[in-house]
């Protein structure tokens, strides 16, 4: 009997969380090209209130299967994306593709874990998730609250992209490409051949200040290569779906300015703290979240450029 009560209490706990899952509301998505659906994330920092839904995430429906591209910043957001998919198709979700390993892109992964779904990412992604995962879970529990972190797991990809691979969704081929260190050291892009649509992940920012967590010199080189892709539209990691390759211009200007400013500071022997305070200051009016990320970008760029 005693046993029964505690089991009952546990059941209540589980039942409540299952109920919450069942009630997951569809994430608003728009069909930006035939069969390609995108949720545009808020341009904001991840919080408990926004459920971490700050990145652009989406899915592509083929003849026989669905591919999810990034899973959002909480399991809740992942579940809502799943609800949006299931409102449109009952085809199996064969792939979950991570454009890279940052929390706003991978925290929703647990919503899709299950038989028949393969997680796909850059060959460096398992290493990045192993090194950073425990820290991200701790840090975002603090930032977003324990409840928002419920169920979040780092799910390492088992299908690794090293160069270019093609995935077939049934009469629909996706080309995945891994990039050298740029925004991060595990960036992957997804190109839908049929509609010439590029999911660029955080290799492309619009409106939201670019965030540097890899290599500024690498990123500038990657931008040149990206620009040559035969896409008609891009889904950036943050910001509105835009025309290609014009979407790259603002970001290129920002990163070039930052690199040039930092180079000058390094040349004249300024300490890294001065870079954090002054580099790319002229870019402030052009970007949202400038004060949240510019000093950090400058710090990161400085620690790279001083080795030139």
């Amino acid at each position: 009997m005693a046993h029964g009560v505690s089991v009952l209490a546990l059941l209540v706990v589980f039942a409540t969380s299952t109920l919450a899952q069942a009630k997951a509301q569809e994430l608003p998505v728009s069909e930006v090209a035939p069969g390609i659906f995108v949720h545009q994330g808020q341009t904001a920092l991840m919080t408990g209130e926004n459920e971490g839904a700050t990145a652009n995430i989406g899915f592509i429906i083929g003849e026989s299967a669905v591919a999810v591209i990034d899973t959002g910043g909480s399991v809740r957001e992942g579940q809502r994306l799943l609800a949006a998919i299931r409102a449109r198709t009952d085809k199996p979700i064969r792939y979950v593709i991570y454009t890279h390993g940052h929390p706003d892109h991978v925290f929703g992964g647990a919503a899709f874990a299950g038989d028949g779904t393969e997680f796909v990412g850059h060959r460096n992604l398992p290493r990045a998730l192993a090194a950073r995962g425990p820290f991200y879970l701790d840090a975002f529990r603090r930032i977003m609250g324990a409840q928002s972190l419920d169920g979040v797991r780092m799910i390492p990809p088992t299908l690794l992209v090293d160069g270019t691979i093609k995935l077939d969704l049934g009469s629909r081929t996706l080309t995945l490409k891994s990039w050298p260190a740029a925004h991060s050291d595990n960036d992957v892009t997804v190109f839908d051949e049929q509609t010439k649509t590029l999911f660029a992940g955080d290799l492309v920012f619009l409106g939201h200040i670019p965030v540097l967590d890899g290599s500024i010199r690498g990123w500038l080189a990657v931008i040149d290569e990206l620009g040559a892709l035969p896409a008609q539209r891009v889904i950036p990691g943050h910001g509105p779906v835009s025309e290609w390759p014009g979407a790259l211009a603002d970001q290129r200007r920002y990163l070039e300015t930052l690199a040039a400013d930092v180079r000058k500071l390094v040349a004249r022997g300024a300490p890294i703290t001065v870079a954090a305070d002054t580099a790319a200051a002229g870019e402030r009016p052009r970007w949202q979240l400038f004060d949240d990320y510019n000093a950090r970008n400058a710090t990161s760029a400085f620690s790279e450029i001083e080795w030139e």
Partner: peptide, 9 residues
Amino acid sequence: GGCSAPATK
């Protein structure tokens, strides 16, 4: 905050 981590970049 954000996605930086105390790890090798």
